[in-house]
């Protein structure tokens, strides 16, 4: 298994703020706690509130080679009015697309309050020269992206070139300007929870607004334990420095039940201050329909069918 090296002793983190020590993660306890929190039963009014929040926290995503302006337009319509028959359903937080489709999404979402997120920095592998990555980011921002989802260079991380990693994130952050920066760690390729914790800290030290689990192109993508691990980093950073970093699990979250489990873990780890789209997002494509079906199930009392919800 790929194993990152220890942090070199003389490594200087670019922030003057003191960060929590990297330490190591108790994998067994972490998985046990995530498993325990996943068993919480959320019912009735609380469930409806959680589902409503899950929609408001969603980054509705399409990242396919086959994406067309038409498909993105349809996705934007769904992002603004997830259930056209029910005006009480809120809009999602953002639409997440490739840079080429940012302009389409931007024009479709104008005035709706739904933000446009774009992946950048040679997504999904991140294996391109830094100048290419920076150009990618600048281009996406120029086209109107409000948020940038960058990928870290896992090759650099796993071979212990942390300085390169940090330097890239810092420069991407500069290139973002006022756009929010989410840093994708691709935890499925990092191998261990220790690595996830270390990469999270490096990303936060370099200026990430959000840390994000996965691109969605690698299995395993987001899991509950890995999300808990990253939330604990965010908690430690907040305790140490007061900075509030956002979290975005992405990939593999397909059911309302899973979404509620993530919200439970979030609430138990970081508390209600983080229960907002400003600090927590779901990266998902098929989750929205299941949440809509669950909401209608709660309201009507009968189980729903995918036949009556839009295909995206």
């Amino acid at each position: 298994m790929a194993q990152a090296q220890l942090l070199p002793r003389d490594l200087e983190l670019p922030l003057d703020l003191r960060l929590p020590r990297v330490g190591s993660v108790d994998a067994v306890a972490l998985e046990a706690r995530a498993g325990e929190l996943a068993k919480r039963s959320i019912k009735k009014g609380s469930k409806l509130a959680a589902l409503d929040l899950a929609i408001r926290m969603m980054d509705l995503t399409t990242l396919e080679g086959a994406d067309t302006p038409g498909k993105v337009s349809a996705l934007c319509a769904k992002a603004m009015h997830p259930d056209p028959a029910d005006p009480t359903i809120p809009s999602v937080a953002a639409v997440c697309v490739y840079p080429n489709l940012v302009a389409v999404a931007k024009s479709r979402l104008a005035g709706s309050g739904v933000r446009v997120a774009s992946v950048a920095t040679a997504f999904p592998s991140g294996q391109s020269p830094i100048d290419v990555k920076l150009a990618d980011v600048r281009e996406a921002v120029a086209l109107g992206a409000d948020e940038i989802d960058m990928v870290i260079d896992r090759g650099a991380f796993l071979s212990g070139r942390y300085a390169k990693l940090i330097d890239e994130i810092v420069r991407v952050k500069e290139a973002c300007g006022s756009a929010h920066l989410k840093v994708i760690l691709e935890t499925g390729e990092l191998g261990t929870y220790d690595n996830v914790r270390r990469a999270s800290l490096l990303a936060i030290a370099a200026g990430a607004n959000f840390i994000k689990t996965s691109t969605g192109k690698v299995t395993p993508a987001a899991t509950l334990p890995v999300t808990l691990c990253m939330l604990e980093v965010i908690r430690d950073v907040h305790d140490e420095t007061g900075r509030m970093i956002g979290m975005k699990p992405a990939g593999g979250i397909r059911t309302a039940k899973q979404a509620i489990q993530y919200l439970c873990v979030l609430n138990e780890t970081l508390g209600t201050a983080w229960m907002t789209p400003e600090l927590f997002r779901f990266g998902a494509s098929s989750l929205l329909n299941d949440v809509l079906m669950q909401i209608r199930k709660q309201r009507t009392g009968s189980y729903q069918s995918g036949d009556y919800f839009t295909i995206d």
């Binding site: 009392g301 009968s302 189980y303 729903q304 069918s305 995918g306 036949d307 009556y308």
Partner: peptide, 8 residues
């Protein structure tokens, strides 16, 4: 009744 009401 559950099956009769089930939309799927």
């Amino acid at each position: 009744p559950i099956l009769a009401a089930h939309m799927d």
